[in-house]
C-alpha cells in the first residue's frame, strides 16, 4: 500500500471504483427486476418502486421452472460423472511415472481448450445417432467434453501436492493403487473435490452453444437458453423486467456459492491456471 497521503487517497479511490464497476451491473439488474410498467424505462440509479410482478410472471411459466430443473440435473450429473472418472485418471497422471504422460496431459488440456464449435456438427450427428436429441442426456454427454478435461487437470494439480511419503507408507502397508485412492487420498482430497466440482458445475450451468443446438422444445431448455430466448409479443418488445428477474433467480445461487467458497475457488482456479 502506498505511503504518501495523496497516493493513499488515490489507492482507496481505485478500490472504490473497482467495487462499483464489479457490483453495479448486478445491482442494476436486481433493481430493474423489481420495476414494472413505465418505471422500468426510466434510467434511475436508486429504486423507484418495488414489485414482485416480474418474478411472478417468470416463475409462473411452467417452461422456466423446468429449465431450472433441467439445468440442475444436467450440471450435477455432468459434474458427478466427470469427478468419478477424473479421480482415478488424475491419480495416474499425478502419481505414476509412465511413458507419454506429459503428452497426455497436454492433450487433455488441449481438449478442454478447443472450440466447442469445432465438434458441433460431429456431436450433432452422434446425439441423433444415440437418439438423445432434445433430451438432457445429450447435454450431459456433450458437457463432458469440457468438464472432464478440466476436472482431470485441476485434480491432477491437487493430487500432485499430496505428500509422497504418505503414499509410500501406504505402499509399504500393502495398499494397491485403488486402495491408496479410496482409503488414503480421497479423504484428503475432499476440499479439492468440492472446489473442482463447483467450478465444473458453474461451467456446465453457464454453457450455451450445445444447449442451444441440442434442445428444441421449450421444456427441455436449460436456464441460459431460456433466458436468451425469453421474448415478448414482438421482436421489438424485449421483456426486460422478466428477463432481469430470471437472471437474478439463476445468478443469486451462484453468487452465494461463490462467496461461500471464495477461497477454495481461488485455489481451484489457480490450480487450473498458474503453474510456471
Amino acid at each position: 500500500m502506498p505511503t504518501t497521503p495523496f497516493w493513499r487517497y488515490m489507492f482507496y479511490a481505485g478500490v472504490v471504483a473497482i467495487v462499483i464497476i464489479a457490483v453495479f451491473p448486478f445491482y442494476y439488474a436486481v433493481m430493474t427486476s423489481f420495476e414494472t410498467g413505465t418505471a422500468i424505462f426510466k434510467p434511475n440509479i436508486l429504486p423507484e418502486m418495488f414489485s414482485w410482478q416480474n418474478y411472478a410472471q417468470v416463475t409462473g411459466q411452467r417452461a422456466f421452472a423446468s429449465s431450472i430443473l433441467n439445468s440442475v440435473f444436467i450440471a450435477s450429473t455432468t459434474v458427478f460423472c466427470a469427478l468419478l472418472l477424473a479421480v482415478t485418471a488424475s491419480y495416474a497422471l499425478a502419481r505414476v511415472r509412465f511413458r507419454g504422460r506429459s503428452l497426455l496431459l497436454m492433450t487433455i488440456l488441449g481438449v478442454s481448450m478447443f472450440p466447442q464449435i469445432a465438434v458441433l456438427s460431429g456431436l450433432y450427428e452422434l446425439v441423433n445417432f444415440l437418439g438423445i436429441y432434445n433430451r438432457p442426456w445429450a447435454l450431459v454427454m456433450s458437457y463432458t467434453i469440457f468438464t472432464l478435461p478440466f476436472t482431470v487437470w485441476v485434480l491432477t494439480t491437487f493430487m500432485r501436492e499430496l505428500p509422497t511419503e504418505i503414499e509410500e507408507a501406504a505402499i509399504v502397508d500393502g495398499a494397491t493403487p485403488w486402495v491408496i485412492i479410496t482409503k488414503v487420498f480421497l479423504p484428503l482430497l475432499w476440499p479439492a473435490l468440492v472446489t473442482t466440482g463447483l467450478l465444473a458445475f458453474i461451467g456446465a450451468w453457464n454453457e450455451f452453444l450445445f444447449a442451444l443446438t441440442f434442445t428444441i422444445s421449450e421444456d427441455m431448455r436449460t436456464v441460459p437458453v431460456a433466458i436468451a430466448l425469453l421474448s415478448g409479443a414482438s421482436v421489438q418488445e424485449i421483456p426486460w423486467g422478466p428477463i432481469m428477474a430470471a437472471s437474478v433467480i439463476v445468478t443469486v445461487p451462484l453468487i452465494i456459492l461463490v462467496l461461500i467458497f471464495q477461497r477454495k475457488i481461488v485455489a481451484g482456479l489457480t490450480a487450473g491456471g498458474v503453474k510456471g
Partner: peptide, 10 residues
C-alpha cells in the same frame, strides 16, 4: 519403514 516426515495418515 519409518519416514522422515512420519507420513502418518492424517
Amino acid at each position: 519403514m519409518v519416514f522422515q516426515s512420519y507420513a502418518l495418515y492424517p
